[in-house]
Design a protein around this nucleic acid. Sequence first.
DNA 1: TGAATATCCTATTAAATCTATAGGATAATA
DNA 2: TATTATCCTATAGATTTAATAGGATATTCA
Lengths: 136, 136
Amino acid sequence: MLSKKTKYGLKALAFLASQKGKEPVQIAEIAKHENISQKFLESILLSLRKTGFLGSKKGKGGGYYLIKDPKEVLMTDIMRVLEGPIAMVPCVSLNFYEKCDDCPSEQECSVHMLMLKVRDSALEIYRNNTLADLIA
Amino acid sequence: MLSKKTKYGLKALAFLASQKGKEPVQIAEIAKHENISQKFLESILLSLRKTGFLGSKKGKGGGYYLIKDPKEVLMTDIMRVLEGPIAMVPCVSLNFYEKCDDCPSEQECSVHMLMLKVRDSALEIYRNNTLADLIA
DNA sequence: TGAATATCCTATTAAATCTATAGGATAATA
DNA sequence: TATTATCCTATAGATTTAATAGGATATTCA
């Protein structure tokens, strides 16, 4: 299941992408428009800024804005920052690989191959969708 | 991420499917072979029995065994019992549908369509794989 | 300069879920 | 009737997620 953090983050990014101008949008406005707890959203936007998706401006007239063209922002990158691994088990993760402690070998593991297929199919979707597609 | 319950359940099912005969296999043997806490596995096998995947026999010489031919057991059915919804959000779930409380409408929701695609791609994998494929 | 505004940042709490264990009841075998 | 192995419920422990609190910092504008 998608975490609230991810869902809210996606909605916030989509909302920012739907804005015509490049004017900063305040947290409060996004939170209100998307029915999100403002404080919770604040921490999510902060992490999106620190990972290079958003820029921000303090003080009056401040807020958050997209740094890149929505068409250039791949869903793979967004998902990995918000939700973490796209794979359902660490042993088939490209960016968050970890060995399973209960498996003697990945060759023998009955779960490994199936989860590899699932990961690949999810990757295909995320690689072929950008932030711009969220608002289309 | 896949829960331990699901992972262990899949491994146990695969182990049972790999057995030549139809003799019951004891929890202890499965647990040892797959490096799983025996008590935890016990509760997992119990739920797989209650949902019609496994049969069981008590007493000496007892244990668990598959009820159906592994080729006839779809991964969709296994996953839904062990892990729950295949969809990442309830609003795109076929078997566990729920309306999102934060969304005014699913048409407008920027997350909805993307998650529908992800669900469909996962479904395609699970529908085209059976328990027999886990041990191939 | 200073008041107002809005993000920045860390810490903490609250809630939910997941993982694992305990301990006896029940049934089958020999 | 002793032994074996599942059945069943309850609960404890651990981890993760969701949300909140409160002040620090920077910017705007009068």
